[in-house]
Design a protein around this nucleic acid. Sequence first.
DNA 1: TTATATTTGTCATTATTTGGCAAGTCATTA
DNA 2: TAATGACTTGCCAAATAATGACAAATATAA
Lengths: 103, 103
Amino acid sequence: MSNQFGNKLRELREQQNLLLRQVAPLLDVDTPMLSKIERGERQAKKELVMRLAPILKAKADELLTLWLADQIAALAADEEVGLQAMQVAEAEVKYQKTKKKKK
Amino acid sequence: MSNQFGNKLRELREQQNLLLRQVAPLLDVDTPMLSKIERGERQAKKELVMRLAPILKAKADELLTLWLADQIAALAADEEVGLQAMQVAEAEVKYQKTKKKKK
DNA sequence: TTATATTTGTCATTATTTGGCAAGTCATTA
DNA sequence: TAATGACTTGCCAAATAATGACAAATATAA
C-alpha cells in the first residue's frame, strides 16, 4: 500500500526531532495510535490532520491533500479499471465545481 | 451527489424494457434495494455489478468504471483539495502499476 | 543490563453498512 | 372511485467495520 501521508508525517516529525510520545499527547491520541497512523495502519481523521499541521509546521492543505490522495489511491489501486475510473471521477468533480457549491 | 453508475443502470434497464421487479430477483436483492442502488441511495457491491452486466447487456468493465468513479468522486467532492488529491493519487496508482502486481 | 522509542496484538465499544419488510406515492386503467 | 402496477420511502435488526485503549513485544542505544 501507499501511505504518502504517513510518510510525510514521519518525515516532518523527525525533521523536528519530535518523538511520537511527545506529539501524541498534543493530539489526544496515544503513542501507538500515532505510530499506526504514520505507518498507514490506521486512518487519521480529518480533524486530527488539521491539528497536526501547525505542530509539524506544515500547511494543512498539503497534508490534507496527501491524506485524501491515499484514500483515493486505496480505492483505485485494487481495481483493474482504477485509472479510468479516476478520469471519470475527475470529470465528475470538475463538473460539480462549476455548478455552484451546494453546501 | 453524482451517481453516474446508477443512472447508467436505469438507462440500460429501461432500454431493455425491464422492470425493477424483474431484474431484482435475478440478483437476489429485493425491488426496493435495486431502486435504491439505481438512485444512488445505496452502494452496490462489486459482485452485484458483475452479475448485473450480462443482464443489462453491458460490459462489466464499463459498469465497474462508473461504479468506482462514483466512489472516488464522493471522496474527492467534499474536500477543497479534492482535485489536487486526485492528481497525487493518480501518480501514486500509476507508480504502483509499474512495480509488478503484489496480489 | 537498563532505559527509551516504537511497534504489535488484542479487545471491547461504537459507528456504519446492509438487507429486508411494510407501507407509501404516483400514474394508469377498469 | 376503486383497483392495479411500478416504484419509492421509512424504518429496523443484524452484520460488518472502524475506533481507541491497553499491555506486551521489539528494537535501539547507552
